[in-house]
Amino acid sequence: MIYSILTLFDIILILTMLWLAWCLLNTEDIFKAVVLFISFGLLMALAWVRMRAPDVALAEAALGAGLTGPLFLSALRRMNRTRKGERRLDSDENREKEHKANQEQG
């Protein structure tokens, strides 16, 4: 009895995680992706618990959800600031500008 219930629990957990991962990879909004990542970390910890690895679950909860999440959020602010200061290092616009400059020189 208990094993069938736990199996059902696992199936729902796996489906939720797959859905979450799919949304996470598909989303365009970076902030949304970060929140989805934090949620994914929490569910991943639950998954480790179900795989009978509570120590890994502890590490996952602490690192995946607790440290990486705030780190990403802080990084997001830096990114916004850079964008406002018109200094987007990695953007397509910059690359185009460089390309044009190169062409003019050439």
Binding site: P54, L58, A62, L73
Partner: peptide, 16 residues
Amino acid sequence: DIALVFALLAALATIT
């Protein structure tokens, strides 16, 4: 113990 870590760190993300 894992629940304890959850409780602590979910709040950390929100505050950050």
